Amino acid sequence: MANVNLTAPAPDARNKKLAIILLCVVAGMVGLAYAAVPIYQIFCQVTGYGGTTQRAEDVAVGIIDREMGVRFTASVDAALPIEVKPAAMSVDKIGSKVTVVYVATNLSDKPVGTTAGFNVAPAVAGSYFNKIECFCFTEQTLAPGEVKEMPVVYYVDPELDLDKELDTIKEITLFYAFYAS
């Protein structure tokens, strides 16, 4: 009868293999964490999920008589030394191309980088809110004491008028959250 060696690998080899596996798991988790935000943004932009607006190259066809108010708000991360003044509320006929301006001021004596994420309320209106130009998800660098105008060009799609769920909606809120970049 042949002599069969049924001994387990040495503890050093097992530990090395476990360490490699754990490093791969950690690297995979870090990779997924970095990929999650862009993938979620793409998903939301395509579906309008969670109040995410649509991107447009130009204005939709036609303006209708129904008016829609758009309120603009902003919040700034407490650790970020900037002040952001949102645009004034706008009331326009649905389908009109509208330009509004947010104004950011660097309150520090150092350059500050910021990026803004956005959302729309009510969330169901997000798929009808089309931004042609926006500063969102683009790093804005403000020199010490600089005041910067940041335009938003948008229109509300006339298809909104056909959505019975939005019959009573007279106002949409566009919210920007500014954080350090």
Rank of each mutant, 00 (worst) to 15 (best):
V4C: 04
N5Y: 13
A10R: 03
R14I: 15
R14A: 15
K17G: 06
L22N: 12
L23P: 07
V26R: 10
Y34W: 13
I42A: 14
F43I: 05
G48S: 13
I64T: 08
I64E: 07
D65C: 01
E67L: 10
R71K: 14
F72L: 05
D77A: 12
P81G: 07
I82F: 08
K85W: 02
A87G: 09
A88N: 12
A88C: 03
K93E: 15
G95W: 01
V100Q: 11
T105E: 09
V112H: 07
G113S: 15
G117I: 04
F118I: 05
N119A: 13
A125T: 10
G126A: 11
F129I: 02
N130F: 10
N130T: 01
E133L: 08
C134R: 08
C134M: 09
Q140A: 04
Q140K: 02
E146I: 00
K148V: 00
E149V: 01
P151S: 10
V153T: 15
Y154C: 07
Y154R: 03
D157S: 11
P158S: 05
L160V: 01
L162R: 15
D163C: 01
L166P: 05
L166G: 04
L174R: 11
Y176Q: 13
Y176M: 08
Y176N: 12
A177E: 14
